[in-house]
Design a protein around this nucleic acid. Sequence first.
DNA 1: CTTTGAAATGAACATCTGTTCAGATATTCA
DNA 2: TGAATATCTGAACAGATGTTCATTTCAAAG
Lengths: 195, 195
Amino acid sequence: MARKTGSHSDITGPLVRKAAQHLFARHGFAAVSMRQIAAQVGVQAGALYLYTPDKQTLLFDLMKTHLEELLAAWADVPRDGSSVERLEAFSRFHIRYHLERPDEVFIAYMELRNLESENFAVIEDLRRSYESELEAILAEGHAAEEFSIPDIRLATMAIIAMLTGVNTWYREGGRLSRDRIEQIYCNMVRRAAGA
Amino acid sequence: MARKTGSHSDITGPLVRKAAQHLFARHGFAAVSMRQIAAQVGVQAGALYLYTPDKQTLLFDLMKTHLEELLAAWADVPRDGSSVERLEAFSRFHIRYHLERPDEVFIAYMELRNLESENFAVIEDLRRSYESELEAILAEGHAAEEFSIPDIRLATMAIIAMLTGVNTWYREGGRLSRDRIEQIYCNMVRRAAGA
DNA sequence: CTTTGAAATGAACATCTGTTCAGATATTCA
DNA sequence: TGAATATCTGAACAGATGTTCATTTCAAAG
């Protein structure tokens, strides 16, 4: 039987994930206790186990969901135009998507070492899938001689690091608008790729 | 009176720091207990307090020492030549120095949130000092019209993120030598700066 | 109004946490 | 040798940890 509409579980479950996300991002997975998460939700610690089998799975689900949604969102971006245009589309998408989800992003690459090895493998696979999207663009552009790239794998890693780095310093209401930041970074990425 | 030569404290102290560094980098500050560190040194937990007032200070000293040594090492690099040459010197220095100290680097920017606010302020100051070194090179090169940079602060952050990113994927004995990696990254950095 | 079943409590569990300190041990110096 | 000093142990502390579970609460269904 499907779950009845309006039951409590449809409300508290997401609240637990949201609270855990916020606390994990702020203090780190290992430094946050189940009781702290419960307090943030307004519930006793035992109640959390109605929504997750254990703390580790809570972290894993957060990271897996984030990466799957990231891949799904990128899949929705139209893949037309030249390699240069697609590189620009990727750069803008990456910056925008990541700036809108600082907690998810922070957790997804700060808490990798707290994953059990099976869970780690799943997350690493998803991350590699995303990297491959950029790598494919660079490879095509290189083949079409739109880019000048001595090593495609290195260029992939360099560009992703550069783009993700925005999250470490960006603050709401800062000196530059998001759009201006996207624009400047696109420029640097394009030149780094030799286009 | 200065400490006598050859006493045990000259040996165990550094061992404690080394063990803590290794464990903090591997499992994270919050996930490592004083007893684990002590076991790695081959000593009981209480003995650690002969070498550090508390766990927090142990972390702080590790980070502070790392950043001070980084700044000192960069200060030793001759600062001559054109802006392009100095940018190349910085890029090569950054990659080489960071690749040789993966644990220190990992701790220094993964464990910031575990610092008490006073300690955090000290570390942030040191980090900013280092960033300023690159920023100065970019500013001079821009003034001399050797570079083409729309925003110097953004270029600084982008280049540092790109260079530090090498540490996340580099593995000893990988496909490319360190020198080749330095070379390729120098190229991308130079082009990102519009030189 | 009664029955049902999910949601939440609150106490209990075994174990781990950072830190302290009196006492034991080992090393150095006279 | 004996005295002094540095080093380490091992137990103790008060409290926190993730997780379980019998019991209670409470809204919806019949």
